[in-house]
Amino acid sequence: MFKIVLKEELAPKIKLFKVMAPEIARKARAGQFIILRIDEEGERIPLTIADFDAQAGTITIIFQEVGKTTDLLGALEQGGYLQDFVGPLGMESEIESYGTVVCVGGGVGVAPVFPIARALKEAGNTVISIIGARNSELLIWKKEMSHISNKLYIATDDGSDGQKGLVSDVLAEILSSTSVDRIIAIGPVPMMEAVCKTAPENITAMVSLNPIMVDGTGMCGACRVEVDQKTRFACVDGPEFDGHKVNWELLKMRARMFVDEERIALTQSCGEGECSCHRKNAK
């Protein structure tokens, strides 16, 4: 069992957990992910690591309540426990001294961008960050990102914070005036795709893919993605790939594999009152 030592609500439906997992915290690197399972009936879901603290022994995860499992997760309290927490999985981010790097985070994607941007800064890069959300209320980790960035840009759909528009619009402006050596983008698929379309082909634009997974160790192949016209497993070959080479249509299509079942889980899983949510409510 893995204790939730801190729970914070960062924005409506966006929550942060610090989970006590000393061994994982000791090994975790920017770009890697964990898989968790809430309880016996739960699914295994992957979440990219938002931060790790080897001394405190904690892993920070940030998630948005978008379905049954993340809803249940959000209902857990500080001091509560997760049944399973496994990691660090996947390959770590490539961190080198590239020169000037633009780090783009959209929505909850700001969280996993944070440790990568920090590592890039520590490696001597000039880090320009762009973070965005639908509105200022949903914008997370503005302060954290400003600490580790040489310059921070903000974009919101409604203009309630920073520039009105998309993070990719801001990126286009930066690219027109600054020489950029590398781009990192994490967020919703359309955002990452837009960033890659904005960035010229000669600038590597790494994206972190989060397809459906089960085991997360290369065993099942559920997380198949196509990169450079080759099938890769995001869990062991990724999760980061050069976004210029990602087959975005396939990624979006495969994300819809269980769209009907996700709805059923949300609406019908409470049939007999024997389900995990009922038992939790009874406790």
Partner: peptide, 21 residues
């Protein structure tokens, strides 16, 4: 592997009581 893992390890045959579809 995926088909059997969903079903055996994650008990998808008991969906939605078990949440893996």
């Amino acid at each position: 592997n995926e088909f059997l893992t969903r079903n055996n390890l994650m008990k998808a045959y008991k969906f939605p009581e078990y949440l893996t579809p």
